[in-house]
């Protein structure tokens, strides 16, 4: 009984891990972000996102693991447009993880919110639970017009009908960096060694990615920036993406 209670206690802890092996996190500086959407295409290219076609867009069944949301503020002529890239926040208390009946989505030891395609049975419950609406469901098996399929990234599964998918923080790149580290006889991945496709492409260097367990990593330092905030923080999902809000001009 006591053992059971201990186990329960452990699961009640955020993320139910004593300590994460790595704790991957990201910061996005909205003062640098211009909303150019280079990251969106980078993600599409890296992660084999399907070309869904006009009809599916009409049905709002597009798949973009990373999208740029836009919000207008004010009215003409004193009007502003603000952009915010929205992707899976890899929450440490992810609402999407609890309802999955087959544990196809869970938190792993690196603090990543996983999505295991071959385990997923397509109940779509996780997508309903996600407050950020960053989970996308494959309503169809999408085809690539020949020879566009030659572009597909062999390191990433091509998903088919009935499977939920979402941002993985480019798990294939994390895996590769760990592989390189092992080749060099290192236990740990160096800071800056893993760059997800979106971070790599960003023309204004608005995104920073790294290990939050390492206090000297760039992302840990950016985390402490006073402009930092988390989206929908009040839901206590403990999102791992910190946005740095747009600064005011001191001129």
């Amino acid at each position: 009984m006591g053992k059971m209670r201990d186990k329960l206690k452990q699961y009640l802890k955020p993320g139910y891990y004593e300590k994460y092996d790595y704790h991957w996190g990201m910061t996005i500086d909205l003062d640098r972000c211009t909303g150019c959407e280079a990251c969106v295409v980078a993600c599409q290219a890296e992660n084999n996102l399907p070309i869904v076609g006009e009809k599916r867009f009409k049905e709002r069944r597009e798949i973009k693991w990373l999208r740029v949301e836009r919000y207008w503020e004010g009215e003409y002529p004193n009007i502003k447009l603000r952009f915010i890239p929205m992707l899976c926040q890899h929450c440490d208390q992810a609402p999407c993880e609890t309802p999955c009946p087959v544990a196809a989505t869970y938190h792993n030891q690196d603090g990543l919110n996983t999505q295991i395609y071959n385990r997923c049975i397509g109940t779509r419950t996780c997508a309903v639970y996600c407050p950020y609406e960053v989970r996308y469901f494959n309503w169809f098996t999408y085809k690539w017009d020949e020879p566009l399929e030659q572009q597909l990234n062999p390191d990433v599964t091509v998903r088919e009908k009935g499977v939920m998918e979402k941002c993985t923080f480019c798990i294939q790149r994390i895996r590769q960096a760990k592989d390189h580290a092992k080749d060099d006889g290192r236990r740990r991945v160096r800071d800056g060694e893993v760059t997800p496709a979106c971070v790599q492409s960003c023309p204004t260097k608005a995104m920073v990615f790294g290990d939050l367990n390492d206090p000297n990593s760039r992302v840990s330092k950016m985390y402490k920036n006073p402009r930092g905030y988390k989206v929908l923080e009040e839901l206590n999902t403990l999102p791992k993406i910190v946005y740095l809000k747009k600064a005011d001009s001191d001129v």
Partner: peptide
């Protein structure tokens, strides 16, 4: 015709999406 776009509501409607200091309209 219906314009095909991905945006839904393009105002924050008081939600703290852009950080605390953003203007709410």
């Amino acid at each position: 015709i219906r314009i095909i776009k991905t945006d839904g509501v393009t105002r924050t409607l008081g939600r703290q999406i852009l950080g605390n200091n953003s203007v709410h309209t």
